[in-house]
């Protein structure tokens, strides 16, 4: 498994008797937006949590840029280039937008060392400011930079979370329902940013999303989960045409 990007092979996540993810394999190459869709309870979030280390998989392996990260601790994975956002939006509400975004890079630099958590090197300051400036510009948040993140609208808060992982310089991003709570115009703008980031910066994105319009707009490749199993993979056009996908969503006999 030396392929760049994220590779998941035969992943199983089980809680007690419930099999949330059942033998799923998928790859998220750099430079692409890979979509992961499926009805409620299909196992998407469990798969995400296994990748980022919040849940320990029952079986299977997870590789990041050819390195086995299956059993690394939660904080180690971002240090290796795996960034994520949260469905419920985990922002630092009392900090300003700029500070939120800066913490994307600062966090990676602070890491696990007590000393590096205490003080920043002089050279790092410029690096952090530069990364934050760029991410704020990419997400169109410059005007809000000095407002507290808690005071922003949902749409802008989603963008702050995105800007934070962009500033983090991660090679691979896991985005968990980033458009929920956005209106049509906001999610379209969000999609445009995602496309630019993936294609322009060679970053791999795994997108869990319910908002199909956005999925079809930005994804280069789609995986469909149902009852924890991989039901379908292919391009968005193939997915729309697929009877299997239609059955999973509409419940007509498959």
């Amino acid at each position: 498994m030396s392929a760049p990007g994220l590779s998941i092979s035969s992943l199983v996540v089980r809680y007690g008797g419930l099999v949330a993810v059942d033998d799923v394999s998928l790859t998220v190459p750099p430079g692409r937006v890979t979509g992961l869709i499926g009805p409620n309870g299909a196992g998407k979030t469990s798969l995400f949590n296994a990748c980022s280390g919040l849940v320990r998989p029952t079986a299977g392996r997870i590789w990041l840029d050819g390195r086995d990260i299956t059993s690394l601790p939660f904080a180690r994975r971002p240090q290796l280039g795996l960034g994520r956002t949260f469905q419920r939006m985990e922002l630092f509400d009392s900090l300003s937008v700029r500070q939120n975004v800066e913490l994307g890079r600062e966090g990676a630099l602070a890491g696990s060392s007590a000393w590096r958590q205490l003080v920043a090197r002089r050279s790092e300051r410029a690096l952090i400011a530069e990364a934050a400036d760029e991410a704020l510009a990419t997400c169109g948040l410059r005007a809000y930079a000095d407002l507290p993140a808690g005071a922003l609208s949902t749409g802008n808060r989603r963008l702050v979370e995105l800007a934070r992982v962009l500033a983090g310089g991660f090679r691979l991003l896991l985005l968990d329902e980033p458009s929920s709570g956005l209106d049509d115009r906001e999610s379209e703008r969000f999609g445009a940013i995602l496309t630019e980031v993936a294609h322009g910066r060679d970053i791999g994105i795994l997108l869990v999303e319910h908002h199909m319009e956005l999925v079809l707009q930005v994804c280069d490749y789609l995986y469909v989960l149902d009852f924890g199993r991989l039901l379908f993979e292919g391009t968005p056009d193939e997915a729309v045409a697929s009877e299997v996908v239609r059955a999973a969503y509409l419940g007509t006999a498959a």
């Binding site: 908002h211 199909m212 319009e213 079809l216 729309v240 239609r246 969503y249 509409l250 007509t252």
Partner: peptide, 12 residues
Amino acid sequence: TDESVFAAYLGT
């Protein structure tokens, strides 16, 4: 029709 329900879901 089945088609228009699906369209509303997918937003096509």
